[in-house]
Simulated assay, not measured.
Amino acid sequence: MTGKINSYKDLIVWQQAMDLAVSTYSLTKTWPKEELYGLTSQIRRSATSIPANIAEGYGRDNRGSYQQFLRIAQGSLKEFETHLQIAQRIGVATHGRAEHLLLAAEAIGKMLRQLIIKIAPK
């Protein structure tokens, strides 16, 4: 990453997590209405939680809190992946669209791990 980071909005991991959340809303628009308060709600909540926790952690005044929120974002990411895999298994999400989002989630997970390592106390 090049350039100075002045805001969480400058973080590529946050930008990609935002894209994942937006793509999740697009994907779930076509899901059955009976899933609205079940799987649809759960996957949307977990997807939006990822960039939200990255942003909240960035706003904290110490590295320990920031790391903790990045770990919470990782947990939300794993929750998202699980919900998406369930949606695939029950036939709500098509394989192609789900795989695209799972690959994006994997890349976000790698960036989160690297960021956690980078800000760890030396």
Rank of each mutant, 00 (worst) to 15 (best):
Q16N: 15
W31T: 05
L11C: 04
L11R: 12
W31K: 08
D19N: 15
K4Q: 09
P32Y: 06
Q16G: 05
K9S: 09
I5W: 02
W14R: 13
I12C: 10
Q15S: 01
A21Q: 06
S26K: 15
K9V: 02
N6D: 09
N6G: 09
T24N: 02
I5N: 04
M18G: 03
D10M: 01
K29Q: 14
I12G: 13
S7R: 01
D19I: 15
T28A: 08
T28P: 01
T30R: 14
T28F: 00
S26I: 10
G3V: 11
M18P: 07
V22T: 15
P32H: 10
T24A: 05
L27W: 04
A17H: 05
K9Q: 11
G3D: 08
S26D: 14
M18V: 11
V22F: 12
L20C: 08
V22S: 07
V13D: 08
V22P: 04
T2Y: 14
V13G: 10
Y8R: 02
W31H: 01
T24S: 06
P32C: 03
D19C: 07
L11P: 06
D19Q: 14
L20Y: 11
L27G: 04
Y25H: 14
W14Q: 08
S23P: 05
K9G: 01
P32I: 01
A17T: 06
I5M: 04
K4E: 12
V13P: 14
V22E: 10
Y8S: 09
T24H: 00
